[in-house]
Structure formats: C-alpha cells, structure tokens
Simulated scan of single mutants.
Amino acid sequence: MRISEDKEFLILQSQKGRPGSMAGADMVLYRRQNRADHRIEKEMSRKRKHQQMSEVNLELNELDDFGMDYEEDIGDSEPEVAETNVKKNTKHTASTCTNRGRKHFITPRLLSALDSAKVSDGKAMHILMATAEALGHCTSDLVVNRSTLHRLREEHRRKESQRIQESFIDKLSDTQAMVVHWDGKVLPDLIGKIKVERIAVLVSYNGESKFLGAPKLISATDRVEGMSFDTTSTNTGPINGACAQLQRMLGRNLLTLPCRHHILEIYLRSVFDLHFKVTQAPEVSIFERFAKAWPNIDTSSFKSGLDCGDIKSHISDGICNDIKQFCHSQLQKTFVRADHEEFLRLVLTFLGDNGGKFKTPGVTSHARWMSKGIYSLKIFLFRDQFHLSKAELKGLS
C-alpha cells in the first residue's frame, strides 16, 4: 500500500473504539439547518427594512412639521420655540394614540367593492390600513378593525338585498303573470371549501327575467302561472317530481313549459343513434378522433354537401334557398349559446354559402347535445381529409 492516508486509516480501524471512520455528509440535517438560517436571515432583513422605512417617514414628518411651523411663526418666533413645536408635532405623529378612533370612513361604495372583489375581512383590513397610511391619515383616529368591518358588511348586504327585493316587487302590477324557472347546480358553500347542491330559481315576465335566489324563493307564488324546467325524472315525476310537488303546494295546476333544448336533444340523439353504433362511453368515438386530427386538417380545403350527388338529389333549390334565408336572418340576432351560431354557420357552408371561419372542435361528450349536429356537418365537409369507414360515411350522408 503506497498511500499513507490509507495506511493510517487502516491502523485507526484496528485500534479499540475504531477512531477512524468514513461517512458522507448528513444532507437532511444540512438542508434543515440551511432552511432555518434562511428564515432567520429573511426575518432580520424584514426588520431592517421596516426600521429604515420608519426612519424615513419620521424624517419626512419632521420636515413637514418644521416647514408648517416656520411659515406660521416666521418674523416673530424664537428658534427655541420653533424647535419645541417640531419635537411636539413629531412626537404626536410618530407615537400611537391611546384614544379609540372616532372617524368613520367606510362607505357603502367601498363595502360593495370589497364584496365584488371577494376580499375577506382579514385581507380587507390590510388593504384599508395601508391605503390610509399612504394617504397620510393617522390610522389611530379611524374606526377600522375587523369586527367593525364584518358588522358593516353584513348590514350593507342586508340593506342591499331588501332594496333589490322592494324595487322588484314595486315594478310588478297586480295582474302581472310570471313563469318560474329552476335548475339544480353544485356550487361552493358560503362557509368552508365543500360543495353543496343548490336550486337556482328565477322568474320571467314581460320579456324580462329576475334571479330570486338559490335555493329560497321569495313570496311571489300567487303570481306564478307556469313552470319552465328540463325534462329529467326529478322534475317530471308524477308523484315526487318537482313540478307535481310545486302544484300541490300552490293548490292549483300550472302551465308546463319543458325546456326546448332538452326536447330537441331527444330528436337529434335518436337520429344519430339510428345511423351510428350506440355506446355507453362518455365520449363519442368518431368525434374524439376528429378532434385529435383537427390540427392536421387544411380548413381552406373542404367540400360542401351539395357536391355529393345523393344529398343534392334530396334538396331542391327552393328548400335550399329557404334554409339559407332562415340561417341569415337568425344570425342577425344575439346568441346566448355559441353552439347555435356555429351550427347555423356550418349549415350555410354545407349548402355552399359563406359561413365564415371554422372553429376548433370543443367538447365531444354526450352532455353537449349540439355537438352531434356540429361534428356531423364538420366531419362531412372535411370527408376527404379525415379517414372514414364506409359505414361512417354512409351514416353521415
């Protein structure tokens, strides 16, 4: 053995107690100590910065107070008197007032802004204190604390809710008939992070609509003459359905207005299932394939439906013009759902008219019922760029 350090190590290993040993650094202990040192250094830096800012503010206050006193006392004041006034005003500004604040500055507009921004009481306190200090106010003179802010916000919400309800009732006439609409939604709870199911309720009357609440309905049941709802069993059940229970509660029959979207969904789904294999999967396989192939499709190269001889033979020129005229008239309106506008534009493109640019494919699940019409038209327009089996091409045409 030629290396002297190795020889010395082996000799120490053979002695009693084995004073010589080899071991790596304890990285866990090292990182723990490093984090602790970093926290201490960060806290010290914060304190130093706060002390520097306090000294700067104190110097600025001294200069301002000295300037004010000098302008008031110039010509007839002694230097000692001016110095005394500077020290007195500086002490009043820098020290904390022991008396309770009396000045109210939180307005209803400020409370509404905090609620609109969803700012909690604790965070609002930091914002208000920092804003008051930035504007040069003595925070000890202001009525600002968490409990007072919480109480003012609750009172403001109660008054606003009462004002909105009263203004809504005043607009209605005694003979005004309304239709109540409702739907179940899973929404975050007001307290905590859990989600709860609520029933969003609104009424429509004279071309206007008003949200009543979720889930509580205000006392306007005497004017309710109809119900608008989706066609699920929880609403249409003959015994325990929401419609049956509402009519029993009111003691009279109401006009039923099932949602037209969900009614048309049945027709569209039945036609689609007639030509394509019925599946229980949440996604439609052919639509999912088309969405993945969309980045490789040239949107400037497509063929309209009238280019297909079978389709052209079933659509006369008069029917084609009527459909185009209807689509153009509907596109002049404002759409709540973007799917309706996209479907009309695809119909125009399918009939050889200018329907505008193509949109990137979106959701392909069964829950988006308009996707069956949108995807079917879009796939047929790009049938030369997207691989289709004979059965799929026959089902689309």
Rank of each mutant, 00 (worst) to 15 (best):
N89R: 05
K91S: 08
H92D: 05
T93W: 10
A94I: 11
S95E: 15
S95I: 05
S95R: 13
S95A: 15
N99E: 15
N99L: 12
N99W: 13
G101R: 01
G101T: 00
R102H: 11
R102P: 02
K103E: 03
K103D: 01
K103A: 02
F105S: 12
F105A: 06
I106H: 01
I106D: 00
I106P: 00
I106M: 04
T107R: 03
P108H: 06
R109N: 11
R109W: 07
R109K: 15
R109Q: 07
L110R: 06
L110G: 03
L111V: 00
L111N: 04
S112F: 07
D115Y: 04
S116Y: 03
A117Q: 12
K118V: 12
K118S: 14
V119L: 14
S120A: 05
G122K: 14
K123P: 04
A124I: 00
A124M: 03
H126T: 15
I127E: 06
L128R: 01
A130V: 11
T131A: 15
A132S: 07
L135K: 14
L135H: 12
G136M: 00
G136H: 00
H137K: 10
S140D: 15
S140W: 08
D141N: 03
D141I: 00
L142Y: 01
L142R: 00
L142Q: 02
V143Q: 12
V144H: 05
V144W: 00
R146A: 05
S147L: 09
T148P: 00
H150P: 02
L152F: 08
R153L: 13
E154L: 06
H156S: 10
R157Y: 06
R158W: 03
R158I: 11
R158Q: 12
S161G: 15
S161D: 13
I164T: 12
I164C: 08
Q165H: 14
F168K: 01
F168W: 02
K171F: 02
L172R: 01
S173A: 05
T175W: 09
T175F: 15
T175Q: 14
Q176P: 03
Q176D: 15
A177G: 04
A177R: 05
V180W: 08
H181G: 05
D183G: 13
G184H: 07
G184T: 03
G184S: 13
K185S: 14
K185G: 07
V186M: 08
L187Q: 12
L187M: 15
L190P: 05
L190F: 13
L190Q: 13
I191N: 09
I194Y: 08
I194M: 09
K195L: 07
E197Y: 07
